[in-house]
Simulated scan of single mutants.
Amino acid sequence: MKPFVLLGTRDHDKAAGDEYESVRRHAGLAAEELIQIRVEAGPLRQLRLDDYSGVFLGGGPFNVSDAVKSDLQLRVEADLRGVVDQIVDADFPFLGMCYGIGTVTAHLGGTVDRTYGEGLGAVEVTLTPEAADDPLLAGVPASFEAFVGHKEACNGVPPGVTLLATGTTCPVQMYRYGANVYVTQFHPELDVESLAQRMAIYRHAGYFHPDDYTALVEMARRSGVRDHPHRLLRNFVSHYARD
């Protein structure tokens, strides 16, 4: 099988490693089947898409809507624009999570702003009728809980996409562009333990008050987040894995 690749932007070694392990484990991939490329670590060479079965894009510390951007953020955004151009033009298998939805939405000419940000926690995600026959959502119930935590989101669906999932606070939780380019606002890779690890790393990053850490972890443990979000990762792998 050709490997999948995870593009990451987290400038923290443990956060980057934890994200890789969460995606790999819930996607059902062996270490040699998922390659990690940390875009923040150095200029991103052009990807030879034919070398891979598909591409994941994880979350990170950057926001498309940031008013002030460092040189590093500007370089990462430019590199990712080049990759997204390739992927969208080729309609290549792609699953962007959290930061991924902002990156693709900007590419498609949609609006990404702070209107529908969601504090860290579990939210109910509801599938649209258009999701009924989508291969990534096979076996996923009509509504399920997933973890979120984001300062920005789509303000309306960008042109030409198929909305697959909505939420109460954030109306755009998942969409597809073309046949093979998918993005989610929620985090399909996160379970309770991986969320707690990420919260500990980003405790002072403005996603929640630092004093609320313990209460938020307990909230996550009491939530209804189970296996349903992870099924998207397994479905992506089983649908697109190729020799």
Results as ranks from 00 to 15, higher is better:
K2I: 07
V5A: 10
G8C: 13
T9P: 07
R10V: 15
H12K: 15
A16V: 08
A16N: 14
D18L: 13
E21A: 14
R24C: 07
R25H: 13
H26G: 07
A27G: 15
L29F: 11
A31P: 15
L34Q: 09
I37T: 09
E40T: 10
A41W: 09
G42L: 12
G42F: 08
P43S: 15
L44W: 13
Q46W: 09
L47C: 12
R48P: 00
D50K: 07
D51C: 10
S53G: 15
V55D: 02
P61T: 14
P61S: 15
N63Y: 12
D66N: 15
A67V: 14
V68G: 11
S70R: 07
D71W: 08
Q73K: 13
L74I: 14
L74S: 13
D79M: 02
G82R: 12
V83S: 00
V84R: 00
D85S: 11
Q86P: 02
Q86F: 04
Q86M: 09
I87A: 02
I87C: 03
D89Y: 03
D89V: 07
F92G: 00
F94A: 00
G96I: 02
M97H: 01
C98V: 05
C98K: 01
Y99S: 13
V104K: 08
A106W: 10
H107F: 12
H107L: 04
G109N: 03
G110E: 10
T111G: 00
V112Q: 05
D113F: 08
T115I: 07
Y116G: 09
Y116Q: 08
G117S: 11
E118M: 13
G119I: 14
G121K: 08
A122N: 09
V123R: 15
V123M: 09
E124G: 12
V125M: 06
L127S: 01
L127T: 06
T128H: 07
T128C: 06
P129D: 11
E130M: 04
E130I: 01
A131M: 04
A132K: 10
D134H: 14
A142E: 15
A142T: 15
S143T: 12
F144T: 01
E145H: 12
E145T: 11
V148Q: 11
H150I: 08
H150K: 08
A153S: 14
G156E: 11
G156F: 10
G156S: 12
G156Y: 12
V157F: 03
V157M: 10
V157Y: 05
P158M: 10
G160Y: 03
V161A: 03
V161W: 05
L163M: 05
T169E: 14
P171W: 01
P171F: 03
P171V: 02
V172T: 08
Q173V: 06
Y175Q: 05
Y177V: 09
G178C: 09
V181L: 00
V181P: 01
V181S: 01
Y182G: 00
T184Q: 11
Q185K: 08
E189Y: 01
E189W: 00
L190C: 04
L190G: 02
V192G: 04
E193S: 11
S194R: 09
S194A: 07
L195F: 05
Q197W: 05
A200V: 01
I201Y: 03
Y202V: 08
Y202P: 02
G206P: 04
A215S: 13
A215M: 08
V217F: 07
E218T: 11
M219D: 12
S223I: 05
G224N: 01
G224S: 01
V225Y: 00
N235D: 05
V237Q: 09
A241W: 01
